[in-house]
Amino acid sequence: MLPTTRINDRIEAFLAHRGFYLHDVRILVRNQLYLVALSFVVSLVLGLPSWALAFFAGAALSTMNFWLLAKGLQGAVLRSRGAVAVTLARFYGRMILTGLALFGLIIWGGFPVAALLAGLTTVVINILFWGMFQFHRQKGKEA
């Protein structure tokens, strides 16, 4: 077994333990965690320049958002009682946290906005690549 496969399996087992019961969602969250880790390592290697830190902050923020969204949606499907209240509370809590974090990063932190936006886009890029991969895999199966 390749070391990367072993790491993938461990992360997926961790995510499954945290309540991500859908395989595709686990893969998406896992890839997103890799992206955040990669951006952190790159910013460390480059000596923590402000743009790299802003990219990392954006990626971490979008990952937190995606994590909570994925977990909330899966939980809402399974939960039979109190799903509406919990989902609403989670949604507004997430939005308030995101707004405050962005406010702090842009106004108080003075981080470069372009890098922050690039970091926030990592979720979209991750989903696009995952979609392309799924499409090619399906094409390969059909051929």
């Binding site: 859908l22 969602v25 998406l28 969204l69 949606l73 499907v77 979720v123 979209v124 989903i127």
Partner: peptide, 14 residues
């Protein structure tokens, strides 16, 4: 359906 919904929500929310 949940996976596709999650992807759509993430896109829209971004």
């Amino acid at each position: 359906i949940t996976v596709i919904l999650l992807l759509g929500m993430a896109f829209i929310e971004s």
